[in-house]
Design a protein around this nucleic acid. Structure first.
Lengths: 221, 221
DNA sequence: AGACTAATCGACACCGTGTCGAGTCGCTCG
DNA sequence: CGAGCGACTCGACACGGTGTCGATTAGTCT
């Protein structure tokens, strides 16, 4: 995971504070951020809050992170890796039960998001303002799309799925659908799905899109 | 110096009041906002920019709008109405060609978004911070979902569409998919679809979801 | 011990927001 | 006509947040 993590001055990441727990500070900032995000939206958290929470002064905060956003980015980086890995694993753990394999991929992403609702909301709000967050998000979505497209193509190749639009295009649509539906559902917005129905509904759309025909019955006279 | 945007609204009609009327000012603020949003993101536009663009001072701005967000909300309100209406019309203009009817609904939303990319991006960034914008957005999505669910149920009732998850649940997923895919595509983010393929891909997913079966072929031994 | 470096923070400059109070303008009514 | 009113305007200010600079301390390394 080589994302633009916060490095203080020089390029390489070598800072190893010996005595007074300098690296602890970084961790303290991170956990403070996670904690505060659970209580109020990112916009209502100032650098000062983060600093005080970590037991340091505001200027000192800037020794560790270039900005508030960078903290969220660092947090996000971890979670994104988690999601990616757990999803790939689920997809690889396919076996012969195709349906279970798709379900596993959906479930992997869902559970990761669910475990980090607060962070996810913060990320969503940065999506609009931070190019770095946008890049990170694009990267993970790209990975999902790539993987999904490959799976669709494999299914088409073995004759299980019908032809249609480019696999990648379907994958783009399906993965963004997931992103949004999962997000609104866990962020408590509307219109959303019930948390318990989430996976079933998404899975239905995925399966019908990948395997289903798109020829509607003609209208009755 | 500050050059007020639309100084003389036209008329060969004589004798406007020396001072431009309040309505003119309000309109000037709105058009300034629209104009500036075409050049830079909302976050880079200050109340002062809006005020100067409209030829008034910053405090005067607050006479017309309570905040920068309220301006975007006002703009958004118009566009949302437009989208809603044009989509309902398309859906009502159905006729017996079911496929064309679905396509029309998709196209209606697409073209409205496309005609107001800048505003849409601004709205997206406020989604995180403004409860009013969130409410407005939720309202329009709710309307879409309601309409979509009714259409799906009608198709099921006449035997054209198979049973499955509640129509409303499918409608939620499909409409959020549209929202997101259209947004990333027109905002130039990734992964996105080509603008020309947008409708075809979305339509495929919609049709397969509404009319298709979700039973994948079993894997070969 | 002297030198060097990571870490720390007080103080400051800056920017954007929102409000207050003191006006101005043009209209209407007695 | 001129007094009064309500719509409108803006200079000045208070506030809260950001990011930076320079001085200072505390440990580490010859």
């Amino acid at each position: 995971m080589a994302a633009p993590l916060p490095a203080a001055p020089g390029g390489s990441r070598g800072r190893r504070p010996r005595r007074p727990s300098g690296d602890d500070r970084e961790r303290a900032i991170l956990t403070t951020a996670e904690d505060l995000l659970g209580r109020r939206p990112l916009a209502d958290i100032s650098v000062d809050d983060l600093a005080r929470g970590a037991g340091i002064s505001r200027p000192t905060f800037y020794f560790y992170f270039p900005s508030k956003d960078a903290v969220v980015l660092a947090l996000l980086d971890r979670v994104v890796g988690e999601a990616r890995e757990s999803r790939s694993a689920a997809l690889r753990r396919a076996g012969d039960d195709v349906r279970a394999s798709w379900r596993g991929a959906l479930e992997a992403v869902r559970s990761t998001f669910a475990a980090h609702r607060a962070l996810t909301s913060a990320a969503a709000s940065l999506l609009a303002t931070s190019a770095e967050v946008r890049a990170l998000w694009a990267a993970i979505m790209d990975g999902f799309v790539e993987e999904t497209a490959a799976a669709i193509e494999a299914e088409r190749a073995r004759g299980a799925a019908p032809a249609g639009p480019p696999a990648r295009d379907l994958a783009v649509a399906l993965n963004w659908m997931n992103e949004r539906v999962i997000h609104v559902t866990y962020a408590g917005q509307t219109p959303a799905l019930a948390e318990d129905d989430l996976i079933d509904v998404l899975l239905t759309v995925w399966l019908r899109t990948v395997y289903g025909s798109d020829i509607p019955g003609t209208a009755p006279a």
